[in-house]
Simulated assay, not measured.
Amino acid sequence: MAGAVELSLPFTGTWLVQNSPARRVPSHGTHLFATTYAIDFVAVRGRRTAAVRDWRTALGTEPPGRFHAYGLPVLAPAPGTVVAVHDGEPDHEARRSPLALVGYALTQASRARAGGAALAGNHVVLALDAPRVFVVLAHLRSGSVAVRPGQRVATGDEVGRCGSSGNSTQPHVHVQVMDGPDPLVARGVPLVFRTFRERRRGGTTVEVARGVPAERAVVEPA
């Protein structure tokens, strides 16, 4: 992708790709909040996001702690300087039930009106060393942000833990690149990831030196 910012995957282990810009742009269905090329990752074992399925999975909400992603380290995907952090938002109950998801969708507009914290939840914004390149790591676990504004980070440094805060239906990591520090006025910037393994839906695993993971692929750092 021309002009794309190259990152490392911000985690270890295996994660399922959702809302990939390899599938569509804008990846999240809107250019608002600089999410044009954003991508989501959900930790999996095999292709399962949680070890438990019960009546709550089918009919209600579920505690975020039953999901594999919850509490896993979220890592800096490139060297840079922390320019903004937000913590203290609650981790929401997870929703896999179609009934629960419908109810959640009906409150989407109210979260958008409530501003960045209601959407991104607990998050970290990094200014990379390249000019006008900023990375957001969002939906972190409440109380887990491990960095402060002005702090330098190297690739692989822990910035927080995966949670389900903000606009989130289950614990996951949201990554986006933008051309300014404030997603309310910035524009989304294309991203690619370096050096990862991608297991596609047909079962084929490929080594990728530089690329955007496919929708519903399972990826891990190589």
Rank of each mutant, 00 (worst) to 15 (best):
G188R: 00
T205C: 12
L119K: 01
V133Y: 04
P77V: 05
A94M: 08
A51W: 09
V145Y: 02
R194D: 14
E89G: 08
F67A: 03
D40K: 01
R201F: 00
A105V: 08
A69K: 01
D157P: 00
A51E: 06
A120H: 05
F134K: 11
P63V: 13
R23H: 12
R199I: 04
V145T: 03
G202M: 12
T81H: 07
P181L: 03
A186R: 00
V192F: 04
F193D: 11
R47G: 13
R210G: 02
R24Y: 03
H174M: 12
G163L: 11
Q18M: 14
V17Q: 06
A118T: 00
L99A: 14
S27Y: 03
P149S: 07
R48D: 13
A120G: 07
V173C: 01
N167S: 13
R45H: 13
R47S: 15
L59M: 13
E158A: 11
L99Q: 07
A34N: 04
V175A: 05
G188Y: 01
V136F: 01
G180P: 02
F11S: 01
R141G: 02
G188S: 08
G203L: 10
R23W: 02
L191N: 02
P221R: 04
L9Q: 04
L106F: 09
I39G: 00
P190S: 04
P171S: 15
A127V: 04
P21V: 05
D182A: 12
T35G: 06
H92C: 05
D87M: 02
E62W: 02
L75R: 06
G46I: 14
E158D: 00
Y104V: 01
Y104Q: 02
V44T: 10
P77T: 11
R152T: 14
T30V: 13
T35K: 02
S142R: 10
L99S: 07
T107R: 15
V173W: 03
L59W: 14
F67C: 01
E158W: 00
R201W: 09
Q108E: 14
S165V: 05
F67W: 07
S8L: 08
G188E: 05
A109H: 11
R161L: 11
R141W: 04
V135K: 04
G202L: 05
R161Y: 03
G46A: 10
A112P: 06
F196A: 11
D91M: 10
G166D: 03
S110F: 09
L140Q: 09
E158R: 04
E220V: 05
S164H: 04
R24H: 11
